[in-house]
Write a protein that binds this DNA or RNA. Structure first.
Lengths: 249, 249
DNA sequence: CGTCCTCTTGACGGCTTTCAATAAAAGTGG
DNA sequence: CCACTTTTATTGAAAGCCGTCAAGAGGACG
């Protein structure tokens, strides 16, 4: 599935567009003890509050992480797609901060968080890349915060669809306006703070507004420019600037 | 204002409870070129989308960062208190991701993001601490996401009050149940996705429920245990575990 | 001492949820 | 591949939470 040997290893490959890894870095990444594991669609990968010594790289498929609230409702915290790093919170916490579920059949590579140590010690630029990756994720979280806090339901649905499409394009560059969204409307609702019923209504509104089309779980963005306005979308990746990084070793 | 020479320098001092910095680390931090700057209450510290080469340490006072949406509404992304790091997103982005405003009179220390480079190169454990700090902040953001997505207004207000009280205690350990919240109800609303009017109503509900008391901007948490339940609060700091860190140099 | 900002309260309206029922799709066992 | 079961999507009606609008009171600030 790749050409450069490290794609989807530890770093979002989008970051690798900005730096060419050295042989030393590539070797260090390749040397990490990765354990491959498969999960079926719907399978529970890890439960919240379990001990969480492992960090995952999603090699294939989709997954999501959620947290349960005391009233039984749940909030999906992040949607993971091929190449994403999962559970880096384990670098700071001993217990899992979210429950992980496979959205499609999935292949993950796991490594113990202790493997981060030699990386930080010998490869400052890789450490910095991990750090930057974290900052970008914080940016995406604050975008969602603004969406949940200040946007109406239709905008939130639009934002989710756009986000998925755009992220998908970095994984599968041939993705155009049409893609498959392997989530139920209930899961979409749990992601953007709505009920399944209202997600359904908003999708049909977007549809009748001529903004999207749907067939099963296939979605087509008919007017991406207008969706971007409605969703108040910002493309964080277009604004990356990591000129300060250390030299690669 | 401090005793150990590095407090409030680059790292959330809460992290420093878990590691004793070496002399080399302390020296490296002290050697950073920090520029002190003062702002008056209400002053604009930095505007969103401006070039943002600097990272700040809030040395004194409170501030917040917000983003404006296209409809003119705003979302406060984070509330900063003494000791907090501000604008670490600059490590990944050239342009500021939020507008910064001083909530009280404020003293900040600024340094260029380029100063991170020698830190990462020579002090892997400091790099790792920065990384962990970022992960903890991601955790706090996901907590707020769950709050905005899945909790009613009263719970969100309770969550904000609790969060402030608990964070304040790490800065001013003598803080008990009573503290001063230097925000208007409109700012509170912009933080938790409500209108000022509804914030007001919810505060009075909490008050008449015997959960809090208020006098001006002084708030007293009368029943913290019950507030924790209502807010679905988790104390992230109690669950820290950073046993994997590299040795200090 | 006047002006502006913030807090407070009531009435009303709208967006979203809840409840309920049916259709459509997906999964299961034979 | 079919019959059956379960999940998911869809739609309508009603209720509720929160927003909007408006007005007055209380404070902060110059």
């Amino acid at each position: 599935m790749d050409g450069n040997g490290v794609r989807g290893t530890v770093f979002d490959e989008r970051l690798q567009r900005f730096v060419a890894l050295t042989e030393g870095e590539t070797t260090a990444l390749a040397a990490m003890d990765m354990q491959l594991r498969r999960f079926r669609r719907g399978a529970l990968i890890r439960r919240e509050h379990e001990t969480a010594p492992h960090i995952f790289i999603l090699r294939q498929g989709w997954a999501y992480g959620f947290t349960l609230l005391s009233d039984g409702s749940r909030q999906i915290l992040k949607l993971y797609m091929t190449g994403d790093t999962i559970g880096m919170a384990g670098a700071g916490f001993a217990l899992a901060t979210e429950t992980l579920v496979a959205l499609t059949d999935v292949v993950v590579a796991m490594f113990d968080r202790a493997a981060l140590r030699p990386l930080f010690e010998a490869h400052p630029r890789l450490a910095a890349l991990l750090f930057v990756q974290g900052e970008v994720e914080k940016g995406m979280l604050t975008d969602r915060l603004a969406s949940l806090g200040r946007q109406p339901a239709r905008s939130r649905v639009a934002a989710l669809l756009l986000d998925v499409a755009i992220r998908l394009r970095t994984v599968e560059p041939w993705t155009g306006a049409t893609f498959t969204l392997p989530m139920t409307q209930e899961e979409i609702g749990d992601m953007i703070g709505l009920t399944a019923v209202h997600v359904n209504r908003m999708m049909r509104v977007l549809e009748s507004d001529g903004l999207i089309a749907r067939t099963g779980h296939k979605v087509t963005l008919l007017d991406e420019a207008r969706l971007i306005v409605i969703a108040n979308h910002v493309d964080r990746w277009a604004r990356l600037d990591i000129g300060w990084l250390p030299e690669g070793r």
